[in-house]
Design a binder for these strands. Structure first.
Lengths: 152, 152
DNA sequence: TGTAAATCCTAGTAAAATAGTGGGAATTAA
DNA sequence: TTAATTCCCACTATTTTACTAGGATTTACA
């Protein structure tokens, strides 16, 4: 049940992007430097978020990325799902239908997975990016590069 | 954020075990047959649950496994954690301490991971095995082998 | 108009994790 | 004694992860 580096780096990058792209587009190399993430790898993560409609790109010199909508309209869930795919703990074909996989019409554990899924989504869909940006400004007012001692 | 087969098979096995071990110990091969899981693999999963104090073993012929406590005292969380380790989405060293990993005393995303962690635990720790056993009896009253069409 | 800074796109790859399989010893009921 | 069972440890194929690499394309600016 671990989030991969995609989700971990991606959310950090997105908070960074939201924080620093208000005046001008932010480049991958900028984010990568501040967050201590490989440029080439981050490139791929941002591409996923672009595909999901969370960020817009401006090509060419002095280009970069900006949010595609306001930070208040982008949830942690949007970000994580764009990178990790669905957050559901078990990929169950019969998840949203009644005809389950067992003889008598549904497997027991399905309801467990669904409950976990619901609670994860409930949580991540109610945390918006603007909140985290405010928090980031409080914790790191001057925008120093973030030292990573833990691997989150 | 996917549960591995350990968690998925393990919970199914545990519900099966809880359901069928009321009168006599249930063997691995019994559970494996009913649940369509490899015996050798299931053996290893049950060993983890034994180590966690969720089941007791009776060795020798006509031996098998029984619950170490009543089904009402074993939560889905107990089972999943015994198999998967911690369910937290990110393994953060500074999780339960205040001195975080960033210069200014904590990283922003830590709070996100903690919220997700809390909501998962809240959910799995309030679902007890006895509930699921009752559900299992409703869905499959005669204890037929469970046909797996989905991979949950 | 050239150059540097950027995004964009695709492919490759080492390391780690997953999902098992396999052999065989120890225990115990019948 | 035998068969059924748990127990323990080692091995392995496959998949996933976490990148690296190369190079094409776009564009601001001198």
């Amino acid at each position: 049940m671990k989030l991969s580096t995609k989700g971990r780096y991606g959310l950090r990058a997105m908070i960074d992007l939201a924080r620093y792209s208000e005046e001008e587009p932010v480049s991958i190399s900028n984010i990568a430097a501040r967050q201590g993430i490989s440029e080439r790898y981050l490139e791929q993560l941002v591409a996923l978020m672009k595909k999901a409609g969370l960020v817009k790109s401006i090509r060419g010199a002095s280009g970069g990325y900006v949010l595609a909508k306001s930070a208040g309209e982008i949830s942690v869930g949007d970000v994580l799902r764009s990178l990790e795919g669905s957050l559901e703990p078990v990929k169950c074909a019969a998840f949203y239908s009644d005809n389950g996989c067992m003889s008598a019409g549904g497997c027991v554990t399905k309801y467990v997975w669904q409950k976990i899924n619901d609670s994860i989504n409930e949580t991540v869909d109610h945390m918006m990016l603007d909140e985290l940006v405010r928090e980031s400004k409080k914790l790191n007012p001057c925008g120093e590069p973030e030292v990573q001692e833990c691997e989150a």
